[in-house]
Design a protein around this nucleic acid. Structure first.
Lengths: 212, 212
DNA sequence: TCTTAGATTGACCGTCCTGGTCAATCCCTT
DNA sequence: AAGGGATTGACCAGGACGGTCAATCTAAGA
């Protein structure tokens, strides 16, 4: 791709990336039209191909862009220092919300990108798929003190429940055309967390307060 | 449409409907190709147009088909007799799972159909949208005895949480290529329900058993 | 004010895919 | 074997596709 893309005003860069993520996220590769991307980005098709020489390059750029964001979210220092399960969840929920505010279609793009056939796109993507994504969980849980959980509680379970609820909530908001406001989401999220904490933590740990 | 469609072997009917729901569910109307539908249904394009005279008719047929399924799920007698919140949820979860087993792409289709612009499709659909869907909630809660809830618990909230988790669970399964088995899903679902019941029901009601 | 180099446009191209048609075949019943 | 409906796929005209490029716009330096 053309490095001059990075010299564009950040707002314009983002507009282009978001438009591309939207179209690739909502349609599969072959049916995702560069015309539509250009229109949604408010930019001529010519310009799109001036920065990204062809469709496949644009797609691959997005792929790495998204993978990068995900990687950065996890290999972040503050992240590594948190040992309390619920505290980590609260923290990463905030991070996730920030990312989603900036990249509204990143989830749709990621789902389509990582979980579909990719028949059309280059081979080197097939390496970075399900297996690596599953590793994310391992890394995510690596530094946690899970001894606070009751014997019969399953942290992975709790994790997934909260993720599903947050996704469902955000999905609901989107459907109703309302933007997801980070602080409102966090209030909800904290309620859910408090409930689950009560159910899954040993009594002596239930009343720990979260820092903020 | 051609009424002879109903005389086809039910398995073939379903194959065609599923293929169509998949393609319409995954692409927006204009970009949903009848070629693809025919291929996915294992049927020639000619036949598709023999039963449904054109694309719009096929789409409208699907729309009513789906709306019908949803309506039937709710206006079902057994449904009306259940007064316990959690019992109703358990029951309707089973129903939903059955429907999804038979119509794997019904959710995707419904979401796209009810929540997108419909610029391309006939006007008469715009009536039957968000408003009516919101009414579903009202009807859903109409016969319930909500006095079993603690003062500070919000039933709508609990409802949504469980729906989100079930959707998330099913989504996860689909991503990993595993079919959603009704009984496994129900075991999960019951666990979540028991947890939430403990948190939200007044103590004297917490230990009621569900019938099955 | 003029020059110029780079950013940006949109009309344009050949190709492929689209919704839709239909004569030809297949398959079943009689 | 004959008849009729079910089914096929080659075929069509038009549109959308990825991609190109000469023409224009913009801004900064002279």
């Amino acid at each position: 791709m053309n490095d001059k893309f990075y010299e564009l005003p950040p707002e314009k860069q983002q507009r282009i990336l978001n438009a591309a993520m939207e179209v690739f996220g909502l349609n599969e590769y072959k049916r995702a039209s560069t015309d539509l991307i250009a229109v949604k980005a408010g930019v001529s098709k010519g310009l799109l191909f001036y920065y990204f020489y062809n469709k496949k390059e644009l797609y691959l750029f997005l792929f790495h862009y998204v993978a990068d964001i995900m990687r950065k979210q996890i290999v972040n220092q503050k992240f590594q220092k948190i040992t309390d399960f619920y505290e980590l969840l609260a923290y990463s929920a905030v991070e996730k919300a920030k990312i989603l505010e900036k990249n509204p279609y990143i989830l749709e793009f990621a789902v389509k990108a990582f979980y579909s056939d990719k028949e059309d796109v280059s081979e080197d993507l097939k390496k970075m798929t399900t297996d690596q994504i599953k590793n994310v969980y391992a890394e995510y849980f690596a530094h946690l003190d899970l001894s606070k959980f009751k014997e019969d509680a399953n942290p992975m379970y709790v994790y997934k429940m909260l993720v599903w609820m947050a996704d469902g909530y955000m999905h609901d908001m989107k459907m109703n055309g309302k933007p997801v406001e980070t602080d409102v989401l966090m209030k909800e999220f904290n309620t859910w967390m408090r409930m689950l904490k009560k159910l899954t933590y040993k009594e002596e740990y239930q009343d720990e307060n979260h820092r903020d």
